[in-house]
Design a protein around this nucleic acid. Structure first.
Length: 593
RNA sequence: GGUCUCGUAGCUCAGCUGGAUAGAGCAACGCCCUUCUAAGGCGUGGGUCUUGGGUUCGAAUCCCAACGAGAUCACCA
């Protein structure tokens, strides 16, 4: 419909004023509520070329449109340079039916020919449990993946697990020293939390050692370097690299505990991956790739044996790729991971979901991958998101000011449960299992929406003192709207919603139809902007608009059967649209709540 | 110091490639449940869109500068 109107305007501009204007670029916006009409065309862009007054142009275009497509444009009005079109009610009915019948409403089908987009997200270290920052990463990554897929891309979700390095050795060492053989089974702790405890223990003892050494007159840097615990950790890392049997066995064991813990958290968050890479498997590939690049003359070796990339041509500095002892750095590992991935998948576009503190890293990685010949390297996307801050600053694991992911999830679900039991008209005829499931869906909905509704680039504030809301602009508000509609539809289960609609929508209903109709555009836009928050905002606006309608209009009690059916179709389409939008964010919808 | 983000109501945030009188939620106050689910709806109050220039029919939006907040510029990952 919009395409036809755009074309008609382009035709009118040409025939009346001799202005050539590409139809697709003509902006049609929804008319503001204060004015009569549904769609608005802004005439200002052409008045100069046409040498007429804005209002005269509006009238001329309005006349032309009514003449050209009377079945769609029933009338118009002009305010200043704004041409407001009133679209025929039957056109809206047709629009509604088309959306209602659309099998996968709002989403573009994916084929074998669709571009392959790989999304890396989560990427945890295996020495401590996940916290709120990881939650943001995981939720954003999952949402991006779903949105890309809805926009018609093949999507591969990957995770690169940082399972090796000095930080793992710290946990291992502490466990050996003070763990007394503790396991998740003997302690009843989740594996990731157990290991995290030893990471903290290491740090505590280590700091004591440093303090003692400094008391003996050693300067801080030397003390940090020479503290016995740190030396032991380093020795352990060397042994690990050498493949020492005992160290590797312990490493394996502890990682398994951590993975079991992560799996629980991932499951609770509704996060999954198609392919998981481990740094212990990619870092050697990275070294090899760098060595190959060195041979091809892409990099250079310094006198001390270290290998560097010269980025001065790109306006950057030199970047180390291999230390003089031949060991790899962060960048080397990311190159190796890229190499493996490229071997595994025909990647067209790569998206890294990583915090904004690593913007420089990805700027460099992009240059290096491009230089190495990865076709997607140059245009790799660093989806850079802001930090989650607490009222008194950033989260710091060492200072214990972290919001633990598992605690938060449990708290949200408990809050949701309490909330539903406080309700005035709470559900009484449900089983314990149903109540628990609703609390899970609603609690997680509140958490996910809270995080995803804000622009990912911005730092966001989380105040643990104030629990996440369930009223207002929240996930539960939207879920509640869905549940209300489902309740109506259950009561009208005997109505045939596929029958031809004869009733026309009223003004408020037209506004809702216009809102629903935007879903495909919103999905496309949010996919190309990498903007999950746009989906959240859309879902909220739709839910809010529906709630007003729900308050003012009766659906089941409408006497006119034709109108009633039309309203049911509208409700059904809105429910599906809400479910789709929330689904893209990884938020489930309850049938009742 | 260089680079990159961000600055909108008391608080947390929307405002898409410039469009009509800048919007929500929370918090405060006042209404609305014998009526399809009150996790809802309606209303009141609350703003020099950090500041100053520029671009033009029109700027919260684009450009420049200043101020303020954050990130980054490691042989840490």
């Amino acid at each position: 419909m919009t395409e036809k109107i755009q074309q008609a305007i382009a035709d009118a501009l040409r025939s009346i004023y001799g202005i050539e204007q590409a139809a697709a670029e003509i902006q049609l916006q929804n008319t503001k509520k204060e004015f009569e009409g549904n769609l608005t065309i802004v005439c200002f862009p052409w008045v100069k070329a046409a040498r007429v007054k804005p209002a005269d142009m509006g009238a001329a275009l309005g006349d032309a449109l009514v003449a050209a497509m009377p079945e769609t444009v029933s009338r118009y009005n002009v305010v200043g340079g704004f041409l407001n079109l009133v679209i025929n009610e039957t056109a809206w009915t047709e629009r509604l039916v088309a959306m209602h019948n659309s099998a996968n409403w709002g989403c573009t089908p994916v084929t074998d020919q669709s571009p392959l987009v790989m999304i890396e997200y989560s990427s945890p270290n295996t020495n401590k449990p996940l916290h709120l920052g990881h939650v943001r990463n995981n939720l954003l990554g999952g949402a991006l993946a779903r949105i890309q897929e809805a926009a018609g891309n093949r999507v591969v979700k990957t995770n690169i697990v940082n399972d090796r390095g000095i930080h793992i050795c710290k946990s291992m060492l502490a466990w050996l020293k003070w763990g007394e053989g503790a396991t998740p089974e003997t302690t009843g702790k989740k594996g990731d939390h157990l290991i995290g405890d030893y990471y903290v223990a290491f740090d505590k003892h280590y700091r004591e050692e440093v303090k003692e050494l400094m008391a003996k007159g050693m300067d801080e840097d030397t003390a940090k370097n020479e503290a016995p615990l740190m030396q032991e950790a380093r020795e352990m890392l060397v042994k690990w690299e050498q493949g020492d049997k005992d160290v590797r066995a312990l490493w394996q064991q502890m990682n398994e505990w951590v993975y079991a813990g992560f799996d629980e958290t991932y499951k609770a968050l509704g996060v999954s991956f198609d392919k998981i890479y481990y740094e212990s498997e990619t870092y050697l590939v990275g070294k090899q790739t760098v060595m190959d690049g060195l041979e091809r003359g892409l990099f250079e070796r310094h006198d001390d044996g270290s290998v560097w990339a010269d980025l001065t041509a790109n306006g950057l500095d030199q970047k180390l790729l291999l230390r003089k002892d031949g060991t790899s750095v962060y960048m080397t590992q990311d190159i190796g991971t890229a190499q493996l991935r490229y071997k595994d998948f025909p990647i067209d576009r790569m998206i890294y979901v990583v915090g904004n503190e690593q913007e420089y890293h990805f700027q460099v990685l992009s240059i290096l991958l491009d230089r190495l010949g990865f076709k997607w390297g140059k245009d790799l996307v660093h989806f850079s998101y802001g930090m989650v801050e607490l009222p008194n600053g950033k989260m710091k694991s060492r200072e214990g000011t972290v919001v633990d992911a598992d605690d938060l999830v449990a708290q949200m679900i408990a809050d949701a449960r309490a909330m539903s039991e406080d309700k005035v008209n709470k559900l009484t005829d449900i089983t314990e299992a149903e109540a628990a499931e609703i609390a899970r869906i609603v609690g997680m909905g509140a958490l996910k929406y809270f995080i995803l509704k804000v622009d990912a680039r911005k730092n966001m504030l989380f105040n643990p003192e104030e629990s996440i809301d369930f009223n207002g602009n929240t996930g539960p508000f939207i879920q509640y709207t869905y549940a209300r509609i489902r309740s109506i539809l259950r009561k009208a289960a005997d109505t045939d919603l596929t029958a031809a609609l004869t009733a026309s929508p009223c003004e408020k209903e037209v506004a809702l139809i216009q809102k629903i109709a935007k879903l495909p555009d919103v999905v496309q836009q949010c996919a190309s902007d990498y903007n999950p928050a746009g989906i959240a905002n859309y879902a909220y606006e739709l839910a809010k608009e529906f709630n007003q309608y729900y308050h003012d209009y009766s659906i089941l009690k409408e006497d006119d059967a034709d109108v009633r059916t039309m309203r049911l179709v509208l409700c059904d389409t809105i429910a599906r649209t809400i479910a789709t939008a929330l689904g893209l964010l990884g938020i489930e919808v309850p049938e009742r709540m």
